[in-house]
Design a protein around this nucleic acid. Sequence first.
DNA 1: GCAAAAGTGTTAACTTTACACCCATGT
DNA 2: ACATGGGTGTAAAGTTAACACTTTTGC
Lengths: 230, 230
Amino acid sequence: MLSKDPNYHNTFSIDNVIFGFDEGDLKILLIERAEEAFIGQMALPGNLVLEDEDLDHGAARILFELTGLQNAHLEQLYTFGDVNRHPLGRVITVAYYSLIRIKSDDLKPRISFAKRASWVSVSKIPKLAFDHNRILEIALERLRGQLRYRPVGFELLPEKFTLSQLQGLYESILQIAIDTRNFRKKIIGFDFLVELGEKQKEVSHRAAKLYRFDKKRYQSLVKLGFNFEL
Amino acid sequence: MLSKDPNYHNTFSIDNVIFGFDEGDLKILLIERAEEAFIGQMALPGNLVLEDEDLDHGAARILFELTGLQNAHLEQLYTFGDVNRHPLGRVITVAYYSLIRIKSDDLKPRISFAKRASWVSVSKIPKLAFDHNRILEIALERLRGQLRYRPVGFELLPEKFTLSQLQGLYESILQIAIDTRNFRKKIIGFDFLVELGEKQKEVSHRAAKLYRFDKKRYQSLVKLGFNFEL
DNA sequence: GCAAAAGTGTTAACTTTACACCCATGT
DNA sequence: ACATGGGTGTAAAGTTAACACTTTTGC
């Protein structure tokens, strides 16, 4: 065990749980740590908050510095403050989470704190630094909870997607089977998907129609009292 | 404005939002502050966390010291960390919340930090210290959100209650009208209320039957896949 | 006997579930 | 022509919503 570092006295950090969806699989963004503690180990992209910085700002800054990602819609998840969660001293951490569309050219750490950032399937998460496995667990619970009651799935898919992709996302994250006809009826009935008049290309079967999520339409429906529920 | 106090550098606190229900009215527990900052003003019962204390423990300790309350089931709500939320320095605060049964003899502050603790109707909250009005707002949102999907109402009522009291609680907190017959059918149908075979006393109208919430029964129903929803 | 709240059932509208076959495309 | 996933409707079961009168009790 490392000895306590007095600079870590009463200090706090932010850790980001960033979900993405790719190849039918839910993934999260991990970095390889290039500094103590847990040097060389995989961890959530997180770091200390600056003294003159609001929490939400810190979350966005830290995410950018460690991964190169910008404009993720970060939401506060939970605060972890067990006395011994950090080997160098008392550090409470505020966890944030976000759902984003994975793009291949996204990931470029801007500071040496992280060696690299990469997407890891949630079914293949190694032992992480600190209490990050636990943080991820809480984030997964929250994601599963929100998936049924808020149209969060659309943030994970590409802008243009097929109804089967959408159904697959729900089935994969919630680990349930969904009846295709009922699913389509319901989703189409919500009346916030726009049929793009385009089709999939380069698939070796009947090409599916492409849709996009109409966020403005969704928001105006919500104002009229509509409640998303899958 | 007070000058910054170097002792408050990178320090964190806990604030508790404690809900109670009495006389058909939702209330929260406030203290009158006996120390700087905001001396003499009403505030949520909160204080600094000790260095060697887990967050959950700190929440329970602080609540006890400032109000005398014990055994409240405290749940973490949200963390507030705006740079200027505290006039003496940077203090992030982790808000906790709890629903409890109000009893008249509960409230006795154990340390001089609070002059007194008292229940205040949420419709009559004054301007509070720090950003506590905002914290309360977030807590109210969370309470309203949870009320429909978790049997939290029973934590606010006395152990023995009538169905009208229960209905009144929902109507008062959610600010909606509920059909009595449908409400009773649904609640009775859940099959986790126990009819006590007793009746109200000293009311000048037909006395209502008393019920209690069977928590064990509820939990075993949940295990079988039951989902509370009002 | 009257005021005040307790208690009780039925029907129509709507929502959810279960279920099976033909279609379009690439190889 | 076959393999692969895309796309479609109906009926039964279950749930929710609307609605009005009688009962009990204290004063």
